[in-house]
Amino acid sequence: MAAKKELLILAEYSQNKIHPVVFELLNKGQKLAEKADLNLSVLLLLPKKIDFSELIAHGADKVYYMEDPVFANPDEFIYKENILSFLAKAQIEIVLTGATNFGRSLAPRIAAGLKTGLTADCTALDIDEAGNLIQIRPAFSENILAHIKSDSRPQMATIRYQEFKKGTADRSRQGEIIALETKIKDNPNLKDIKKLSDREINIAEADIIVAGGSGVKNGEDFKLLKELADLLGGQLAASRDVVDAGLIAKEYQVGYSGQRVKPKLYFAFGISGAPQHLAGMKEAETIVAVNTDPSAPIFNLADYGIVADLYQVIPELIEMLKN
């Protein structure tokens, strides 16, 4: 009997950990693999071997890895050369990877190397009756959802972080761990690579977001929002207008041209609710908006709206929470 073909997740190992999107993909991947009758496997390239049991507990049947110091830096050329050397021999039907910056930079190279199709930034995936992958992605500034299919193999897609939920671990699951040889270790055209700084603010992962827009008058006043965010163990964020006005750094921007966030609770203070802002936060579980203008569009999307001055509301909220 021929071995089962595989659904492979290309796992990003960065900041000394497996990127959380990998666990979301394992959860979704399990369902897809079952429907398409595939094995679920993961490929990791990393500087030093780690304990892979979490991957198996979350659904991986096989974990392939390459261990080499060269993988301590995000060099797409070295990564793609080694991944291509593996894929050339493997029986892979589907390759999924997180649409992180690195994933979005690396996956296209791999797809072009294989001359296979790649669908960008998917928000949903399914298997059709013939066993093909249906890749669903927003396009034209989120105005439409395109259902895309590929007639080449492997079928490849990048998937946005926080579209799927992480599953629960099953520690009784068994899986195979397979070491692969690192074939290419040198990139003659890359003369130097160094980390300059960590991007410390990571609003995409926060459970609570306290966002401010043009209703916040100056940079100093963001301290008020920060105080509320800290009190709630949440993260500060902003609309583009205040970022453009230089009141707060770009890393805080939520929206179409900023970060997409999906917190459990999103506070919008003095944000009107432009479509480009909503594109980044409309999938928050619960939205609370505070705006002095009762006709502000944000009130059409919010679960709870307060028609009031944010400069009154925030201190009162802080007061209440402190008690």
Partner: peptide, 9 residues
């Protein structure tokens, strides 16, 4: 990349 800023030559 990788939630950090890098310089590459």
């Amino acid at each position: 990349l990788w939630q950090a800023n890098y310089s590459k030559s």
